[in-house]
Write a protein that binds this DNA or RNA. Structure first.
Length: 216
DNA sequence: TGGTAGATTGGC
DNA sequence: CCAATCTACCAG
């Protein structure tokens, strides 16, 4: 399937394996690199993610227990958790981890593959490769909103779906501290839980002081 | 019941 | 550097 800018899908799309997501958030995060996400007839390839654990991760929305907003983080792995950031931007997560434990992988950046050429995608002054760069822009590019919160990404009938093709996760992902956390997260600021496909354009800049940037 | 900070982004 | 704008959480 050719993209608007020369990028392509490698081999047939098949649904992402739920089992890959039922492991701990860090393993699930690594597994999601180079996976594909579709919504509204658009398709992107995930190139930057962050892992969030439930109860022991001060940066997690689920750290303080279940609330109306974070309820989906407690759902079965493979569901979509969408929250509103700063009252404006939607951010998409893939729920992960063993049943009964809250966990999620924040999708921070993706590469356009197909369907992003429409005028409705705010192509205005952002280059095509930046359309889905950043968690807020990723959702805007795909048309994901809180209305999609709680859907099963592995359900063949779902509006948002998660796919795998023949491009597997990188053997060595770039890895460093998570972006955007408040200082009160303490130690967790430096946990190397952000993962990036090496060489991917338009991913978040590492936070100064948290920039390990070493393949792990 | 009001104040504030936040897994962000774009504009001045 | 700051505003936009909604939710969760905490102080009083």
């Amino acid at each position: 399937m050719p993209g608007t800018d020369g990028r392509v899908v490698v081999g047939p799309l098949r649904p992402f394996c739920r089992r890959e997501l039922q492991r701990d958030p860090v393993s699930a995060a690594r597994a999601l690199l180079n996976a594909l996400l579709s919504c509204s007839g658009r398709l992107v390839r995930i190139v930057e993610v962050e892992a969030y654990e439930g109860s022991k991760d001060p940066a997690s929305h689920a750290f303080g227990g279940r609330t109306p907003r974070n309820a989906t983080m407690f759902a079965e792995a493979g569901h979509l958790y969408v929250y509103l950031s700063y009252g404006i931007h939607h951010c998409a997560n893939v729920v992960c981890g063993p049943a009964g434990e809250a966990g999620a992988v924040l999708l921070r950046a993706a590469t356009p593959v197909a369907g992003l050429e429409g005028a409705d995608v705010a192509a205005g002054r952002l280059g095509a490769d930046r359309l889905a760069s950043g968690p807020g822009r990723l959702c805007r590019a795909l048309g994901i909103t809180r209305a999609h919160d709680g859907i099963d990404l592995l359900d063949p009938g779902a509006a948002v779906r998660l796919w795998r093709d023949d491009l597997v996760p990188p053997r060595r992902a770039l890895c460093d501290g998570r972006v955007g956390l408040s200082e009160r997260c303490g130690d967790a600021l430096y946990w190397p839980w952000r993962f990036v496909v090496p060489g991917a354009a338009a991913v978040s800049r590492p936070v100064p002081g948290r920039r390990a940037r070493r393949p792990v």
